[in-house]
Structure formats: structure tokens, C-alpha cells
Design a protein around this nucleic acid. Structure first.
Lengths: 203, 203
DNA sequence: TAGGCCATGTAACCGGTTACATGATTAG
DNA sequence: CTAATCATGTAACCGGTTACATGGCCTA
């Protein structure tokens, strides 16, 4: 779905400014399954205003820049409903971590470990953020969606925790005796790590 | 990560043609966490050949178009390793289904149900595909990655199955008495569905 | 006093997709 | 006879991001 539909979705739940939409969509509760930046949101809103899908009301506030508060029109609402009613696109998932995990045999054990720790960290933060934000969205579906996210992320966390040793055991096994362009210090570390990996594997 | 790194990742595991890379990356086992199309892969390979990160060998085969088989050079291998060793970007997840679930209160029960069924379907297919493809990839990490995906997707499936009634109960609650631009037939259906939703909620 | 927050907007750029051209072979 | 598979490549397009301009207020 494009930025337009996304804006309509947010506005359908409550009127807001471009600034607020961006925040919700790329930092707030919506940010876990969509994304957009100023450069696409502002033009989208402007165009939709021209087309009559949304209306803007300017609010002046002392000491702060004026805000342009957008609301959906009936036309916008039905446009949104129509967009929702047709088959949803497949989910999109991209993960550099998984690409890296896939290639674990080519990597240093230390790099693999760091990557795992960072992923675990990232997952924990996502979960925490979801928990903090649910309450802030005034939509009955928000809690349900939060539950979906939480449950997937928790499962991912469990999987990584339970299987990290298996991945660490793979690290370096694809580099048998191969020359590295890395500095000798690192190369030495690789050898040591390989032994550690073997030990872990034997466990 | 960009297409170049992606190509290097694939080539690091086994030499292959642009055609094969595309298949692996957007239909095969890699497709669950990355993506790319011909239009970006071919130019990327060509440029990397110029730069000496990969080498190409042309294979002529009777009755079929000749294939250009690429392999990584040592230079390419270390470039890839360097790319992997620096902190991975955060995962990207986009889901039209979750946007829709978020807005369930604005939707017809029938649309919500259809969306849920389709999501369940989609999840099942992904899992099945993962199971079929793991064996085809010659990388020790493949099995681990497959496990990660399987486990998340299965959890998602469980969540949707266990909580679908809750979501269905929300459907339509945000439309109280509001005019729809939809044809009368559909509008009537909305009313009926709202009652059904209430019944489900009462369960 | 440096930097972050509020708030809007635009222009340049870019990575990537879509769609096409080409053409023999094989499966349904 | 049609459609798909194999296989490479390019050009036009496009949706979106990055980075900037502007500027007052508040916090560390």
C-alpha cells in the first residue's frame, strides 16, 4: 500500500497533522508494520486535499509554528474502505540478520555472537516499545495488532536464545584454511574462535 | 543491504548466473528475508565484474541461451565479509494485513473475515515453502534460518487462530450509523454483519 | 550555547521495479 | 497451439528518501 492509503488510515482514526502522522508511522505504534517520511507524507496530503479526500484546517498557536490539521472527508473515507476491501498485499519481511545467519559459516565466531546479541537486543526493544505505545492509539484494533507483534517477536527471541549455540557452532566452518585479507590479529582470533566453536558444538 | 551484497552472499555459497540468483532471491529460500529483480541484479553483477569482485565464465549449451556463470574473487569475498562484519540494519517488516486489522472497526465483518482467512492461508504457504526449500540450499546456516522463519510464522498462525474472534467482534463497531457510499446491497450486509459481530462478541 | 522539539515544505537524488526485446525448447 | 522455462539485458519510470531551508521555544 502507498503513503496515501496510509495517511487515510491514520486520519480515519483521528485527525492530525503531517508531522504527527510521520511520527506515528515511523516512530509510533504504526511503525512496526508500515513506514513513511516527511518527503512523501506532505505531498500526499496536499494532493489529497486537492482531490477532496481530506480537508485541512489551520491552527495558530503562540510561539509555535502553525499546524495544518487534516481530517478525512466522506469521499476519503469511502476511498479508504475500498482500498481496504480488496485483497491485501503479502507481508514484506527483510532481515539483514537472517542473511548473515545464512552465511554464518563464512563469518568469525565473534561477529556471529555480536550479531546475535544485537538481534536479541533489537527484539527486546521492539517488544518494549509495543507495550508502551498500545495505550496511545485510540483504535480497538491496536491491542490486537500489538498482540500479534508481541507474540511473533517473543517467539523469535525464544528461538534465538534456544538455538544460538547451534549457530555459533557453524561460525567459521566455511573458511577452512582460506586466506583472509583481514589483519593478522583478527586472523588469529578466527583460529581461536574456531576451536571455541568446536567446543561449543561438542557440548 | 543492497543488491550487490546480496549477490555476493549468494555467490559466496555457490557460483551461479544472474537468472539463478534472481530465482533464489525472489522465489527461493532467500526470498523470505530479501528480494531483488532482474533489473537490479544484472547491472550489479556487470559492475562488480568491472570492479573485480566477481568473475564471469560463459557456458554455451545447445538449444538454450548461453549462461554467464559468476564466481566471487578473493577481493569480492573480503568485501562481503567486511559488509557482514559491520552492524546489521534493523529488520524491515511491512504488513497490509496488520494495517487492516488496526482499522477493523471501520470494516465490514465479511471483509475482516476474508482478510483473516487470506492471512492464514498466506502464512501456511510460507511455512510449507520454507520446508520444501531448505534442503536445496547448500549452507549450514540455511536450516537455522528456516527454523527461525518457521517458528515465527507458526506463532503468527497460532495467534490469529486463537484471537480471530476478538478481531471479528471489533469489525464494524466504528461505523455506528455512518453513511456508506457503497451500494445498498452491501450496506445492508454491513448491518447484518454488525449484528453477527455482536453475537460473536457475546460468545 | 548546543541541541532537540515543534512544524511545514521542497528539490535533488537514487535504488529499484516494470516492461519490453529476443528466441529456442519443452510441457500441457 | 499456448504457455512456461531458460537466459540476458536495457530504458523508462516511479515511489520514496535524504537533506536542506526556516525559526522560535525549551531543556541540559
Amino acid at each position: 500500500m502507498n503513503v496515501r492509503t496510509l495517511c487515510l488510515a491514520v486520519l480515519n482514526c483521528c485527525e492530525s497533522t503531517g508531522y504527527e502522522i510521520r511520527k506515528l508511522v515511523s516512530e509510533g505504534h504504526f511503525s512496526h508494520f508500515v513506514d513513511a517520511s516527511y518527503g512523501s507524507i506532505y505531498p500526499a496530503l496536499a494532493k489529497m486535499e486537492q482531490e477532496g479526500l481530506v480537508t485541512a484546517r489551520e491552527e495558530f498557536q503562540p510561539g509555535k509554528p502553525p499546524r495544518k490539521v487534516y481530517s478525512v472527508t466522506d469521499e476519503g473515507r469511502s476511498a479508504f474502505l475500498i482500498a481496504l476491501s480488496k485483497p491485501a498485499q503479502k507481508d514484506i519481511f527483510k532481515s539483514e540478520f537472517l542473511l548473515l545467519a545464512m552465511c554464518a559459516e563464512m563469518m568469525d565466531l565473534s561477529d556471529v555472537r555480536r550479531a546475535i546479541d544485537m538481534q536479541l537486543d533489537y527484539l527486546a526493544k521492539e517488544i518494549q516499545q509495543i507495550d508502551e505505545e498500545v495505550a496511545q492509539v485510540d483504535l480497538a484494533g491496536a491491542e490486537w495488532v500489538a498482540g500479534y507483534g508481541r507474540s511473533c517477536l517473543q517467539q523469535a527471541t525464544v528461538y534465538v536464545r534456544e538455538n544460538r549455540k547451534a549457530l555459533e557452532a557453524i561460525a567459521g566452518t566455511g573458511l577452512q584454511g582460506r586466506e583472509t585479507t583481514k589483519p593478522t590479529g583478527t586472523a588469529k582470533a578466527t583460529v581461536e574462535d574456531s576451536q571455541t566453536a568446536a567446543a561449543v558444538a561438542a557440548e
